[in-house]
């Protein structure tokens, strides 16, 4: 299969700090690709370059034939890239069902549709779709509750459902389990495993090695703004450079 995302020669400096240096990364279509690295390694910067939030000093980010640099967020979405944020970005004042109806409408209506006289409650297919997306993440019984009132773990799963309903070509997950309790993390891992078969590509930025090694097909390791290794989970586990830079004691414990 081809590459869905190609990051070539990306450099990004903030003042004198080299946040990213010479990043070259190809993401293959249909796999789960994890990007790991210690705090401050440049993971978030790289992600922001991918979604057009930051304009790198040099280099290009090509996604499915689109140049991502300088693209508007709503165009990025319609190009097929959806991001799930680290702090849940949901609509707290709307119900869970409405939260999932919105992205379903985005997929159907495009960036703008003026239909003030259509009746929402008659859009049966959209609400069915939204309901089954909620069911996928196990939140269907809360459908009528305000999204602001559910737990943090549930909010993150809700955001995942909002991403999945759009069936994007590429889903960017920014630390999908950060700040979650162990059993919550395991629920999310199971969920991500379950939706792995749907064939969408995913990039996961993660701290938690347990999550990364149980999900990823390929892993890239970022350290001090450089990619020091890319490979299968086994290759990464046994890579001496990675052990030195990042995994350290944890890898020794496991072997």
């Amino acid at each position: 299969m081809g590459n869905i995302l190609e990051i070539s020669n990306v450099n990004q400096t903030f003042g004198g700090l080299h946040a990213l240096s010479d990043i070259n990364l190809q993401i293959e279509e249909g796999i789960i690709h994890a990007i790991i690295g210690p705090n401050g390694a440049g993971k978030s910067t790289l992600l922001n370059c991918c979604i057009g939030r930051l304009k790198p000093d040099t280099g290009s980010v090509m996604f499915n034939g689109h140049d991502m640099i300088g693209m508007q967020p709503h165009d990025i979405n319609h190009a097929g890239m959806v991001r799930v944020f680290q702090t849940p970005e949901i609509f707290p004042e709307l119900s869970l069902l409405e939260n999932t109806i919105i992205p379903a409408l985005a997929k159907r209506d495009g960036t703008f549709k003026f239909n003030p006289f259509a009746t929402l409650s008659k859009e049966k297919d959209i609400s069915d779709q939204a309901m089954s997306a909620l069911a996928d993440v196990g939140l269907d019984r809360f459908a009528d509750q305000h999204a602001g009132s559910i737990s943090r773990g549930d909010k993150r799963r809700l955001e995942l459902a909002m991403g999945l309903i759009q069936e994007p070509a590429l889903l960017l997950l920014d630390e999908p389990t950060a700040g979650m309790a162990r059993h919550d993390t395991n629920r999310t891992i199971d969920l991500l495993k379950k939706i792995k078969e749907r064939g969408m590509t995913k990039i996961i930025i993660e701290h938690d090695m347990h999550v990364v090694f149980s999900l990823a097909d390929r892993i890239s390791v970022l350290a001090q703004g450089r990619i020091i290794a890319t490979g299968t989970p086994d290759e990464i586990k046994n890579n001496p450079k990675v052990k030195e830079a990042y995994l350290g004691e944890e890898a020794e414990d496991e072997s």
Partner: peptide, 17 residues
């Protein structure tokens, strides 16, 4: 009509986030 339309819900969603 606007309050109960998809358009109206999108406006509320803009207010929310």
């Amino acid at each position: 009509k606007i309050f109960r339309s998809p358009y109206g819900m999108k406006l509320r969603a803009i207010k929310s986030n």
